[in-house]
Design a binder for these strands. Structure first.
Lengths: 216, 216
DNA sequence: ATTGCCCCTGAACGGTCGTTCATTTGGCGG
DNA sequence: CCGCCAAATGAACGACCGTTCAGGGGCAAT
């Protein structure tokens, strides 16, 4: 994100990368990579299109604007995240401890494995104009509410005993704190690290269950 | 951060804001505000200077470049954060539980109170060029190592029993996870919220002590 | 009154940006 | 072999960027 010019790692193939089947998919992939590495506002349309072997003008055969391209790739990532999270919870039985563990496992592993996509979806959302940003925020709130729901169930069943906030129980704040932790794994987890995704997910699940005071 | 043009909230005073004593301080304050609201790359030099009643060229009487301005305000924030964190730990006695609680308290309260500064220091660091980013990263590592040190002491004294990662104890990963949580309070905590800074700090300290398995 | 200095002004410069569009390309059904 | 149309080209456009710089006060010391 530091240098403003593309890194140009190698000059072996004049047509960079291997040919993607659909040009629109190649554009999406190149945009993901470049937005993640250098940030939306400094990545130019020319950069993206050069990275998939086309010229600037060709972008507008597939997207109305650079802004729509960003929304497209963020929305697809965010939508699938919401889907897999809800699916993980739904398939974890009735025990809120199992639900929370399943949620953390899916959420953290996805943020490790799809590091680039998660990074773009979480960091570049602010560049969308007001109209497009609304449904992304809605999806985020939905995910947060899934966590709040699990916590609420656990508290009602007497299985969770989370810390209080000023004498009161604020599950929304706790859910935000936990989600911040899980989300930002994508900022520093690297495949070069010594910890496998599986172990990462386990660590975070353990910490979450302890933080909310889950009965053993 | 969405709109590219300054918000222009009111037109009451043609000279916006009240007069700051030193122009250089006014520039710093305006830059903080604008970078936090809209992001470094889309805030222009003209925007910043207009916000403190000057014209573009005057910036270069105080800073060598826009880049140096960003580094200046980030480095001062980061430096003071490092200072207050180390001071909090030093003045908390020998019990690692008290040290950790004191650290979290200072760190979280600072990220609530100085929301704007924390936001800029954490989000805009990537726009600095490689030379300037180095000492910011060093300071961040130093802060992380303070946390790792507290955890290590607690484990050695048998006062902390943190979760394992693949059979091994990875204090660095745990410290990163906790710091992510504490740092990103500045992303969603607002003075409009119903939770006071004090209670926020207490909540996060409670969660941290539970997460690392502190003995009661 | 004059000097020197600091600070500010605002036009100007060379680039680069997102986007448009007239034109060319290329593959395919007939 | 022809016509067709979606898709790609690359020059062009207007706007705006960070930075420079010659010129112009204002004010303290001389």
């Amino acid at each position: 994100m530091t240098k403003r010019k593309p890194a140009r790692t190698a000059v072996a193939t004049p047509a960079p990368e291997r040919e993607q089947r659909l040009p629109i998919e190649a554009i999406r992939a190149a945009a993901f990579q470049q937005f993640a590495e250098r940030g939306y506002p400094v990545v130019t349309v020319r950069d993206i299109m050069k990275a998939c072997g086309l010229t600037q003008g060709a972008l507008y055969n597939h997207f109305k604007s650079k802004d729509e391209l960003l929304h497209d790739i963020i929305a697809s990532t965010q939508g699938e995240l919401e889907r897999v999270c809800q699916q993980a919870v739904a398939g974890a039985g009735d025990d809120p401890r199992a639900k929370l563990a399943a949620f953390v496992r899916v959420y953290v592993m996805r943020h490790c494995r799809l590091r680039v996509e998660a990074l773009v979806a979480n960091r570049e959302i602010g560049w969308l104009d007001a109209g497009r940003v609304a449904d992304i925020r809605r999806s985020r709130r939905a995910i947060r509410d899934v966590v709040v729901g699990i916590l609420k169930q656990g508290v009602e069943n007497g299985l969770f005993a989370p810390p209080l906030t000023g004498g009161r129980l604020d599950l929304k704040a706790i859910a935000m704190a936990l989600l911040d932790q899980w989300t930002h794994v994508s900022m520093w987890y690297g495949p070069g690290g010594t910890i496998a995704e599986e172990e990462m997910a386990r660590l975070y699940a353990d910490m979450a269950l302890r933080a909310v005071g889950a009965r053993p």
